[in-house]
Design a protein around this nucleic acid. Structure first.
Lengths: 203, 203
DNA sequence: ACTTTTGTCAACCATTTGGTTAAACTATTT
DNA sequence: AAATAGTTTAACCAAATGGTTGACAAAAGT
């Protein structure tokens, strides 16, 4: 039977690793740095996770799983297209606001080493847009929506949700915004984004 | 007077560095790899640029300068708001389509080490949205546009332009798209994005 | 022609980094 | 309490990595 300390250490490692990996990325993160952040010996990292790659995998998969199911649930609910867009954007942005490093992390690392990424992603279930696609196509056919493909619409939705989080330093420069004003912009977007989208596609 | 080989080597280095840095990022890029790509000895990298940081700076600043002026020119032209949006999106996406690694690179590296980034960015002139902002506010006041702040509108524009490039692997997964179908989606967006935006804000 | 400057390279160096080991320590089982 | 299994640490190691050096060649200046 495991004693309590086991789990504590493992969790401390995972949280430290999450923090470091998400802020610096796989390549720039140092095992020693993660150990320091967790307040433990570096050997522990290798004791609980065998290598940097495996530790990274655990963090990456965990990060993805914290996000993907939410998207999927909303996309496959029985709501109308408009309701889905509203809920999706609001939930998505709200979630990202409290995990601001997640998007950069996921996007950045999905561009890495082909084989490694491929291996990682095999363990992950991605959100399905099947039902959403059907609904959009139906509404367009019925003349309730201006013509648009579900794919382009979906890209637009997540682009508008995610982009401010991956581009925060850039936007702060161009818009001359302080951090607090930036926070406010994000807050507004929780409802503004869906309104913007719906405005664009409603007839 | 410098002999021809000098410049050749320097350019070869810069191009190799651009290619490697933009694909892998500063942290994951290896000096040896850059030397190999340039077909020269590793010592040459230090001969022309003193350190990895300085070589990176050169590439980063170059990348930024290849993009920023375009945005700025359009934003500060005498076109109408709608025309600006059309030109902006079309030019921006067209440019990015032939420099697909640029956005990830810039966004990723702007999240890096505070002091280093600060130092880099001091040398860069960012696009100004001043004139665009005035125009948008005027049009909203005159009742020609649905109410929206210039900041939110600008975020939306560049989000829709840039996002597909930084999220390509993610989108390919979720949308089940091949590379060629992805290319086609991008192509469509050169006109679709501005149409989408204008649809949303026109009265 | 010869001296100086500039460009190029192979070998080398110091440090960093991911990873290992063996021993100490702690808790659990018998 | 002795044996066993699990946990933690300090010291170590090999490979990788950014960077340096010194010899040498190719131009350029004189």
């Amino acid at each position: 039977m495991k004693k309590t300390k086991d789990t504590n250490t493992e969790i401390k490692i995972l949280e430290a690793a999450k923090s470091i990996f998400q802020r610096k990325g796989m390549a720039a993160a140092r095992m020693q740095e993660i150990a320091d952040e967790a307040g433990i010996n570096k050997s522990m990292l290798h004791y609980y996770f065998r290598s940097k790659e495996l530790l990274f995998s655990a963090v990456f998969i965990g990060a993805f799983k914290s996000l993907a199911p939410q998207l999927n649930d909303i996309l496959n609910s029985d709501d109308t297209v408009f309701d889905k867009i509203k809920k999706f954007s609001n939930n998505h942005i709200t979630f990202l606001a409290s995990h601001p490093y997640l998007p950069s992390f996921i996007l950045q690392e999905m561009n890495g080493d082909e084989a490694f990424v491929e291996n990682l992603l095999s363990e992950i279930k991605f959100p399905s847009i099947k039902k959403f696609k059907q609904q959009v196509e139906q509404e367009v056919e019925d003349g309730n929506l201006k013509p648009i493909t579900a794919e382009q619409l979906f890209i637009n939705i997540i682009a508008l949700n995610i982009f401010p989080f991956v581009a925060k330093p850039l936007l702060n420069r161009i818009l001359n915004t302080s951090n607090s004003k930036y926070q406010q912009l994000i807050e507004e977007r929780k409802t503004e984004v869906s309104a913007f989208i719906i405005n664009s596609i409603k007839k």
